[in-house]
Each structure stands twice: as C-alpha cells, then as structure tokens.
C-alpha cells in the first residue's frame, strides 16, 4: 500500500537520515521511534508529501505521491503536532470543517457522536478557546472517528497531553482501523500497547531503519 525507497532528509546542513525505506500494507501498524531531533516529524511530513525528500521516493500503490498528489491526499488523514483547530470556532464547527476538508463529509450527528466518543460530551458548543490542552487534542483526534474509510492514518505523537482514558480510546480507534484493513503510521514516546496483526518499527536512533 505505502512504500518508501532510499529516503534521505536534510535539515539545514545536517543529514537526518539516509537510505531509509519501508513497506506498509493494509492491516499493519508502523511506529517510528527515536530521540528528539532525529527527524521523526520530518519523516512523517515526507510520507505525507508536505516535505520533499532530498533523495528517494514515496509510492502509494506503486505510484509516486508527487504524481498522484490530490488522489493520494484524499486517501490520507494527517494529525500533526499542531491541533489544526481554530480557537474562535466551537468544537463541533472545528470537527465539521476538518472532516469536510479531509474529504470524508460528516453531518452534525456524526460530529457530535465522535466528540462524545472522545469524552467531550457537553463541550461540543463551547469555543475551543475555553477548552484545556488535553480537550483540544481530543477534538483534533476526534477526526479519526468518522474517517474509518480513509485507508492511511499518519499520526504525529497522538498520545501527548492525553489522560489514560483518552489514550485508551485512541488506541482502540487505531487497532480498530488496522483490524479493518487500514494502515497507521505513527510516532510516540509512550509505551503504547496497541493490538495489531503486524506492527513494524523504524528506529531513527540507529541511523537508517
């Protein structure tokens, strides 16, 4: 499904990693580990097509993502460090906008159900400004609920700022998605135990994975 060949990434004059390749099929979980600054986020951004690698290629079903562009981006959900939510909008409005942007249209009922699933019952109509950092992260992650149909999930540190209950919910979402034939590509520092048929790992500390 997703394949990377001989990736090299440079930041300023430093080469973060080189010759990195992997293959991710449906129903698989791929975790990227490594100390801070080893290029985890850069790798994620390269896989999404936000950042062009200095060398190498990323292929989706055999097609180079730089050629596929919108076709590939329609099949992907990316949740980065930033929560991608607007402080002035309410949680429900934010989720509705991000779902529409991502291509998986969700009506109001689905949006509220997703927010409830992430433990945000009662906060749907509060401006996000009023929510805590953990709650905002839940609003951002609530996007995963209606995007079950999207095959590839790319998550950057999904568990940060989340309490135990929320981590549990997100883990279920991920394993549910993987069990349903989707692929998840994520980075985390938490020793999360996510049940998955096949879970691979790229460790950027030891150089190319």
């Amino acid at each position: 499904m997703l394949e990377a060949v001989d990736l090299r990434c440079e930041r300023g004059a430093r080469t973060l990693f080189r010759g990195l390749g992997f293959r991710l099929r449906g129903g698989e979980l791929l975790r990227v580990t490594g100390a801070n600054g080893t290029g985890k986020t850069s790798l994620l951004r390269i896989v999404c097509g936000l950042l062009a690698p200095a060398q190498g290629e990323v292929r989706w079903h055999g097609g180079d993502i730089r050629v596929l562009r919108e076709e590939f981006w329609g099949r992907l959900v990316y949740i980065g460090h930033a929560n991608a939510i607007k402080d002035d909008l309410t949680a429900a409005e934010n989720l509705a906008v991000s779902c529409t942007l991502g291509g998986s249209s969700a009506d109001d009922a689905q949006v509220r159900a997703a927010l409830r699933q992430l433990g945000l019952a009662g906060c749907e109509d509060l401006p996000v400004r009023a929510l805590s950092q953990g709650q905002r992260r839940r609003v951002a992650l609530a996007r995963l609920v209606p995007s079950g149909a999207v095959p590839l999930w790319v998550l950057d540190e999904p568990f940060t700022a989340l309490d135990a209950a929320a981590v549990d919910v997100v883990q279920q979402l991920i394993s549910g998605h993987v069990a349903g034939g989707g692929a998840v590509f994520y980075t985390t520092h938490l020793e999360a135990s996510i049940a998955a048929a096949v879970s691979l790992c790229i460790d950027l500390d030891r150089g190319a994975g």
């Binding site: 936000l50 919108e70 992907l76 990316y78 980065g80 991608a84 939510i85 607007k86 991000s98 991502g102």
Partner: peptide, 15 residues
C-alpha cells in the same frame, strides 16, 4: 499557518 489548519488544506483532496 500558526495553528496547523493550513497543513490540512495542503493535504486535502481538493486542489
């Protein structure tokens, strides 16, 4: 750009 919504627009299925 600051709050990350711009990245979502870049990664949307719409040109």
């Amino acid at each position: 750009h600051a709050d990350g919504t711009l990245e979502q627009m870049l990664l949307s299925a719409t040109p």
